[in-house]
Every structure is written in structure tokens, then in C-alpha cells.
Amino acid sequence: MSLKIAIIDDEIHIRSLLEQTLEDLETDFDVELLVAVNGREGLEIIQREKPQLVFCDVMMPEMNGYDVCRAVKVHGLADVKIILLTAKGQEVDRQQGIDAGAFDYITKPFDPDELVLRAKEILGLN
């Protein structure tokens, strides 16, 4: 089974940043990167592709990060680990994310290297 990482963000630069950050994993470990531009599309991809890891922005129009987490939980996709990208200092946001079913969170702005390390760790890559 191939490894899949989904990226959900409505900001094109962030999407592209995440893609570029994780592109080494694509080449080195044959990880498939899936990209969605909003929550709804992201949820569709998750349901369809069942990625092992999802990087999901919190602040999105219509369906935000928490909604995505809750929906994933409702659909019984417990193996999907969602890492929320949240603003630093927003304690309430973080707690809300954990409650909604997020696996972890990373504060923006993030260190690309650190992001890669977390992804590798979660996917069990070396």
C-alpha cells in the first residue's frame, strides 16, 4: 500500500510551500501527495484516498479544519492522522482541534525541516 499525504489549504502559497517542503518525500520514499483547496474537497479526497497523514489548515471558509476532523471521525476513518496548521498562541484553537479529533497541530509559521521530520516520524520513514 502506497503512502499518501493530503494537503488541505485554501491559501495557494501555503499549499505550494507544503508541496515543496514534502516533495523530497515524494521522490525519496514514493509518497503520494494529494492536494485540496478547501475543506469539502479535502474531505472527499480523504474519504476516497484514505491518506495516512493530512496537513489541514484551520482557518478556511465554509468548512474549516475542525469540521474536517469531526467529519473524518464521523466516517470512522480513525487511521487518518490529521495535523492541524494553527496560529500560534491561540490556545483555545488548539484544544478545540484536539477535541475535534486532530492527531496533532503545528503552529504557523512552521519550520519546513521540522515539518518533514514530523511527517517521516508519523509515516515511519527514515
Binding site: 501555503i14 510551500l17 515543496q20 517542503t21 504557523k108 509559521p109 512552521f110 519546513p112 525541516d113
Partner: peptide
């Protein structure tokens, strides 16, 4: 934060 994320991320 969003543009900063981009700036720092892309810089890295």
C-alpha cells in the same frame, strides 16, 4: 502569519 509562513517557508 500566513504571508510570514510563506516567506519563512520558502526561504527555508
Amino acid at each position: 502569519r500566513t504571508p510570514l509562513t510563506s516567506i519563512r517557508g520558502f526561504l527555508a
